[in-house]
Design a protein around this nucleic acid. Sequence first.
DNA 1: AAACATTCCTGCACGC
DNA 2: TGCGTGCAGGAATGTT
Length: 270
Amino acid sequence: MPELPEVENVAIDLSNTINFNSPIAKVTLSKNQLRFPWPQKISQKLTHQSFLKVSRRAKYLILETEDYALVSHLGMTGSWRLGNEKKLHDHLVIKFKKGESLVYCDPRRFGYIDLIQKKDLKQYVRFNHLGPEPLDDEFTAEHLWLKSRGKKSKIKTFIMDQGVVVGVGNIYASEVLFLAGIKPTRQTEKVTRAQFEKLAQCIRSVLTEAIKRGGSTIRDFQYGKSQKGGFQNYFKVYGRDKKPCLQCQRPLLKLVITGRSTFYCSHCQK
DNA sequence: AAACATTCCTGCACGC
DNA sequence: TGCGTGCAGGAATGTT
């Protein structure tokens, strides 16, 4: 579910709705851990803190308090919401002294939550290997070009590598490559300099448009007051195998690259 | 009922 | 030989 545009929308939504500067009264954990064991003393540490800021790095959501940073990754099915109702698969409930609780729900428990000292955020292990944000100025065709030298992997695998550029997941990788006119199976080394210009441009434009449309909802991605994304209605190739290519009308193809479904047009993508 | 939007890890094959 | 690289597969698991 959540790639960069979805997480960005969650961050925007929480920034607009969370009760900042409102002390936490109680933190409740489910018996099940998520991907990793619950952080040490998370309940004690968060109690009496207040949230000051919500942000995003790659596909990670960061909720800062006075002393701590709550770092959360949504995995496949994680979601945050404000409210007082209980739902199946709620795993963390942060109750404020006033107002609605902040709840993390995650049916498959592929996501995770970590709590670190705010001062350790810059050298946080999970962030250290990450490449640039695709919508920052440091993300350029030149950057892709340099990273791509000597790379024998397929271009789709390359752009999904979070060390190259963050935030491009399985859905957007197919969309980006279609727009850039590059076959997902193309060997990274053999992509031309001109194609990398196009590629960088398409990564930016696809992600920007997806953010604008509230991300994509394929099965169950939701945020805020059960809002769904809208970008799935604009997919040009994802999930459209055997359907006509929107440019040439030939049937789109599906194949598996590193275990992930990949959609493309063999005529329009070189 | 097979497929799945996530990351991370292991083990293998290959080439220099 | 030993190293780096690429990648398949598996792990976590519930839903449709």
